[in-house]
Simulated scan of single mutants.
Amino acid sequence: MASSALTGKVETDVEIKASPEQFHDMFTNKPHHLHHACNDKIQACDLHEGEWGKVGTIVNWSYVHDGKAKQVKDVIEAVDPDKNLITFRMVEGDLMEEYKSFVVTLQVSPKSGDSGSGSVVHWTIEYERLHQGIDHPETLLQLAIDVSKDLDAHLTKPN
């Protein structure tokens, strides 16, 4: 089997009620507040180097995946406020024990249709596994879906 089978991409869309700008702003400029929305999934997000929302910034995440506490360090590779897009490249941590590369892109778009309210969060994970015995990251995609729903509930709850 060709080594290219080790590379892959998983994607999903999550419909939310919050605006694209609200959701994007949380992940881009205030990820250290995410634990308020989903502390059972995201324990902490700490600025390691740089400024929130800027390309080249390095961020440390503490999160729970498959019932286990995990850590990951990522670098912000791209930020496009006009498209409500941000890309993170994982550089250290638990994920790097299984993946040679792991890049997460999050883009939020207005929901099309008659209602005109709400958004669609599009998550893309592009990765290369270290070997065939490592699972594709579907459970991490599910974590992204769950975090999206929790964050949406947090952003849209009445004050």
Rank of each mutant, 00 (worst) to 15 (best):
D46L: 14
V108N: 11
E128R: 06
R89W: 00
S109M: 04
D74G: 14
S148N: 07
N84S: 14
P137R: 02
A144K: 04
R89V: 01
D25V: 03
S117I: 06
D94C: 11
A37H: 12
K149L: 15
D80T: 11
H24R: 03
E98Y: 06
V10P: 03
E11P: 01
C45N: 13
R89Y: 00
K83Y: 04
L141E: 00
K149H: 15
N39P: 14
T139N: 09
L34V: 15
D135E: 14
L141C: 04
K73P: 03
H65W: 04
D74Q: 09
V14E: 10
D94F: 05
G67Y: 08
M96T: 14
K9W: 00
I125F: 05
H131K: 14
W61D: 04
H36Y: 12
G56Y: 08
V55M: 01
D40I: 02
D13M: 09
F23G: 01
M96V: 09
K111Y: 06
E49D: 15
G56V: 07
E11A: 10
R129E: 05
V59Y: 05
A44P: 11
N84A: 12
S112A: 15
V64S: 09
D13F: 11
K30G: 00
L140Q: 04
T87H: 04
S62W: 08
Y63Q: 11
T124W: 06
L140A: 12
I145K: 14
H122R: 08
G133R: 08
I134E: 02
C45Q: 15
V121D: 06
D46T: 15
A37R: 10
E138H: 13
I16M: 08
V55F: 04
K70I: 01
H131E: 15
D82K: 14
S112G: 12
I86A: 10
D40G: 06
V121R: 10
I16K: 03
V91N: 03
K68W: 00
D25F: 13
